[in-house]
């Protein structure tokens, strides 16, 4: 017979273990979003303090780097402005619609978590009260990091591209080759651009950006660079390894860009939110150019990527 104290311990650990096993079995059905929201609210002040100490520690070096980067970007910006003016003029001559810029909302990355060992989620300092909604894209000045998956009044949670359940429709910037970006945790964690045909030409070092086919993300956000090209296990497609553009190990500030809102008729359309706003004259011109035969229904995004 065990002493009473030990008996209590055995009962306690048995209860905890049984509860844990039960959660492992039915855990996916438990709505944990509210609990995560509560946890985010409780931990936010402490995360801010811990983050502030970390920021203070690295701010000196970062300030020097940012000064150099600012100078470089200002030069590049001047050149791009000239090119943008020229592009707008050319698009107008070709009858193409003008690009519309993204609305970026700066947010603070309070905490990283989710994955083990690699983080695959981030707590952001803005929520519904700031206009953030589920589905919004989250990016840094370097590139895409994920999208908002849960939203609470003052905080939100983003699923990062290092979440194996995320898939992003992407394209190679120079050639327009389309593929689906996924995070593959094993045999070693990496970002892989899959569903790329063997005949498609992709070179190491090329930039991969979000695609026109994406239902979730605006086109043209940098995602990463091609670092390795090999055949997938079937031998029918290429499997392209991508080095992320954003520094996933140093996420402190980010931007939230509004994602496409669900259309009223329930039929998803790519780029709905990011199409340029059309005037009545634009619509009339488009109608005049449209073919008389009915257009086939556009297929959904390749392979279910978002």
């Amino acid at each position: 017979m065990l002493p009473p104290a030990e008996r209590r311990s055995v009962v306690l650990v048995t209860a905890y273990a049984a509860l844990s096993l039960l959660m492992l079995v039915v855990g996916e059905r438990i709505p944990a979003s509210g609990l995560r929201g509560l946890g985010a609210v409780i931990f936010a002040p402490f995360d801010r303090v811990a983050g502030a100490a970390d920021r203070l520690f690295t701010s000196w070096n970062e300030n020097t780097d940012l000064h150099a980067r600012l100078a470089r970007l200002e030069t590049e910006n001047a050149r791009l402005r000239l090119m943008a003016a020229e592009t707008a003029h050319l698009r107008e001559q070709l009858g193409l619609e003008a690009w519309r810029g993204l609305t970026l909302r700066p947010v603070e990355v309070l905490a990283l978590g989710g994955g083990d060992p690699l983080p695959n989620a981030a707590t952001l300092s803005a929520g519904q009260n700031d206009g953030v909604q589920v589905g919004d894209a989250v990016l840094t000045s370097d590139g895409l990091i994920g999208r908002v998956s849960e939203c609470w009044p003052d905080l939100s949670r983003a699923s990062l591209i290092t979440d194996a359940n995320q898939a992003v429709a992407c394209e190679v910037e120079t050639t327009g080759v389309n593929g689906i970006l996924r995070f593959v945790p094993t045999p070693r964690p990496r970002l892989v651009l899959s569903a790329v045909g063997l005949a498609d030409t992709v070179r190491i070092g090329e930039l991969v950006v979000t695609s026109d086919l994406s239902l979730r993300f605006p086109r043209g956000i940098p995602v990463g660079r091609v670092s390795r090209i090999e055949q997938d296990p079937t031998g029918l497609m290429q499997e392209i390894e991508i080095t992320p553009a954003a520094r996933m190990a140093r996420l402190r500030h980010a931007f939230v860009a509004p994602g496409p809102r669900p259309p009223l008729d329930g039929i998803p359309r790519p780029k709905l939110e990011f199409e340029p706003s059309r005037t009545r004259a634009d619509r009339a011109r488009a109608a005049a150019r449209a073919p008389a035969v009915p257009r086939p229904v556009a297929p959904d995004t390749v392979g279910g990527a978002q």
């Binding site: 905890y16 509860l19 844990s20 096993l21 039960l22 959660m23 492992l24 855990g27 996916e28 438990i30 944990a32 609990l35 995560r36 946890g39 978590g113 989710g114 994955g115 083990d116 989620a121 699923s159």
Partner: peptide, 11 residues
């Protein structure tokens, strides 16, 4: 709870 999946794994 932080991990979204496999509730009870670490516990």
């Amino acid at each position: 709870l932080d991990a979204s999946h496999w509730l009870g794994r670490h516990a």
